[in-house]
Design a protein around this nucleic acid. Sequence first.
DNA 1: ATGAATTACGATTAGCGTAAAGATC
DNA 2: GATCTTTACGCTAATCGTAATTCAT
Lengths: 210, 210
Amino acid sequence: MLLHSGSLRKGNKTMNTNFEHYRIFYYVAKYGNLTKAATVLHTSQPSVTRTIHNLEKNLNCRLFERSKVGMKLTPEGEVFYEYIAAGCAQFFKAESNLSDMLSLENGTIYVSATETALHCYLFQAMESFNEQYPNVHFKILNNSTRKSINIVKEGNVDFAVVSAPFQIEKPLQQKVLRKYHDILIGGKRFEKLKGQKFLSSNLPNILGSV
Amino acid sequence: MLLHSGSLRKGNKTMNTNFEHYRIFYYVAKYGNLTKAATVLHTSQPSVTRTIHNLEKNLNCRLFERSKVGMKLTPEGEVFYEYIAAGCAQFFKAESNLSDMLSLENGTIYVSATETALHCYLFQAMESFNEQYPNVHFKILNNSTRKSINIVKEGNVDFAVVSAPFQIEKPLQQKVLRKYHDILIGGKRFEKLKGQKFLSSNLPNILGSV
DNA sequence: ATGAATTACGATTAGCGTAAAGATC
DNA sequence: GATCTTTACGCTAATCGTAATTCAT
C-alpha cells in the first residue's frame, strides 16, 4: 500500500504569482515576438522583456528560447501557455461581458432610419427593447437609404435601418429583417389596370398613358 | 434591413485592465470579506480595499455592496465573478501544472518502505519511473509499516509503501497497490497440516502443538 | 466593544521610458 | 544595416503598511 501526506516536498515553495505578468506572457507567447507584444500592450520592449525575465525567475523556469527571429516557447512554456491562454480568454470574456452589461444599463444608441423602416419596424422594436433595458435611449435620425449608409460609414450612428435596395462596402455588415412589397392604390381612373402585371420601372409610362 | 459598422459607440473606451486586480477581486468575492481576503493574500485590508476601489473605478462599475457584515457582490459583480473565477482556476492550474513538471524534471523523492514492499513493488516501480524521468532521484528508507506511517506523518518522507495492515489518521491518504498472501513453508514435521484451514492468529498454538 | 470597511500619510518598490548595447542574419 | 533582445539608468507612479477613523452590531 502507498500512503502520502498530500504534496511532495519540492512543491512547498509558494509561488510569488502576479497575474498581470501572465497577461504579458500571453501576448509574448502568442506573437513570439517582444516587439509585437509591446506594441499590442501599449508599452516598450524593455518593459516586456523585464517582465518576462521576472516571471521566469519567479516561476523558476525558462519559458522561452530566445533567438534572432524572436521568442519561442520551451516545452514547459508550451504547456504553461495552454493554461494561461485559457485563463486569459476567461478574463477577456469577463471584461467584454461586463462591458456589454454596462452599455445596456444606460447610454444612447444612435440610429439612422428611413421613414418606412421607422414605421414598419423600428418603433415597435424600440418599444420592446426598452421594456428590457429602460435606461437605454435612442437617437433617431430620419434619412434616406443612401444617406443612412453614409453616416454609418462615417461612424456617426451605431447602425441604420433602411428600406430600399442598396450595396454596402467592406467593413459594413447587413442583415435582412423582413421583406415587403408596395401596394399601389388608385382611384376609378386606374380601375382598368387592376389585376395586370407590369414592371415597377415602367410605372411612369403606364400611369401617364391612362 | 439593418446595417452596422461593428461595435457600438459606448464600447470604444478601452479598459485599463490589470489582471493582478482580478486575483484580488477573486478572493474578496470568494470570501465576501476584506479581512479574510487580505489574510489569504498575505497583505493588509487597506491594500485590498484600495485595489477593489481602483478596480471598480477602472471598470466603471460597482462590483460589491458594502455592509457591516462584509462585501456582497452586486448582480453585475456576480456575473463578472463567474468568469473571473474560471480564469483564476485556469491560472492556478497553470501554476500547479508547471510546478509538477518542474518537480519531476529534477529533485529527490523520499520514500519509506518495508522490505516486502521494496522487493515486491518499489524496485520495479522506480525503474520504470526513471525511464520517463531520469533526473528524479529516490531516497529510500527501509522501515517497518508502523515506523513508515509515523515518518510520513512527520513529513520526513513524501510517501511510504508498506505491506502490513494499518490504520491511518485524518490528513493521510492510502491507496491499495496490490493484494498478497503469505505462504507457509514447512518441513515433513508439519506435513499433516497440509490442506487444513486455520486463522493466522492461532498459528503459534498450532505450530507449538506439532 | 467588537469586527467590519475606509481614509490618511509616509515610505518603499515595482514598473516605465529613453537611450545605448549585444547579437544575429 | 536591419531586426531582434537585453542592459543601464533615472524617474514616476502604483502599492504597501501602520495607524487612525467611521460605522453598525
